[in-house]
Design a protein around this nucleic acid. Structure first.
Lengths: 147, 147
DNA sequence: CTGCAACTTGAAGTGAACTTCAACTCAAGG
DNA sequence: CCTTGAGTTGAAGTTCACTTCAAGTTGCAG
């Protein structure tokens, strides 16, 4: 089994065929085609999909994921080193996000519980990078606790 | 200044007036009205909004936030104790989410970098509780590292 | 060769969380 | 009193990340 059909990819990755087609339209994924125009994926694409899923977990939009994936070589199958570089970048993102949530955790009870609370003292703000999550409205991040 | 207008609330909370009206339609917020039908908020509502923002940060949908807020007393201004109870619940959510992301972090480089990778070994799965984030598609969570 | 599950496409639909718009009313300073 | 910035409504629009649909095509097992 050299290549995988879209159905097989869906089964192995847990991502619906419709989503895989959507990712392709959005430029996150590319599949070779058979003579009859059916998609054929390589096993390496599973790694790509895993990356997409993980990045989404971290709260990154498909737009940003596309940009990140663009850093992978197009002419050859990405090597272990290529992926390491990319993942260490996201690892950074992840660390930041974790740190943010830890600060949130450490302040939550105190802030919400007491009269002080809130947007003033807890300094929930909207930074330029919206790591937080997709969604239209303003996204916020908890500032380092400094009060 | 006893009560706050919608504009003042927006300024103080960082949430747009349109969003505050939306929250009211969705039953997350309630404002008194002037004779002329304009909204007047109490300072306590800032706490409510802070809670909404924080819960969103954690990846909870407005639906679930509404349900949580329903546990607050309706007849009186929530006390410190009321808020503490609620926030400790979310603190739990937050802890879980942090733990999930830490597992993700610990496995990311190894999983993505090496040939093994992926959806098999890294066991990214879709649990019954979609803490993760809003969004339509299947949401996943990283299982406790057990390989 | 046939049958049928699995694939193809473009277009339209979905749900969450808002925003924008048009037309109108209110409230507060001068 | 009058002006003007802020507020009101319902309806429609937007973005993201997909899914669903209809109508047609492909590929493999028997």
């Amino acid at each position: 089994m050299e290549t995988l059909t879209i159905g097989e990819m869906a089964a192995r990755s847990g991502v619906a065929p419709s989503a895989l087609r959507y990712y392709e339209r959005e430029g996150l994924l590319h599949a070779a085609r058979t003579g009859g125009n059916q998609r054929r994926y390589e096993r390496a694409d599973l790694r790509r999909i895993a990356f997409i899923k993980i990045a989404q977990q971290v709260g990154v939009s498909l737009d940003e994921i596309r940009e990140a994936l663009a850093e992978l070589p197009e002419n050859r199958t990405p090597t272990k080193a290529d992926w390491s570089r990319l993942s260490s970048h996201w690892r950074h993102r992840l660390e930041e996000r974790i740190a943010m949530m830890e600060r949130l955790r450490d302040q939550l009870t105190g802030c919400i519980g007491c009269g002080c609370l809130s947007l003033q003292r807890c300094t929930l703000i909207n930074p330029r990078d919206r790591l937080a999550s997709r969604g239209t409205g303003p996204q916020m991040i908890l500032n380092p606790p400094r009060d």
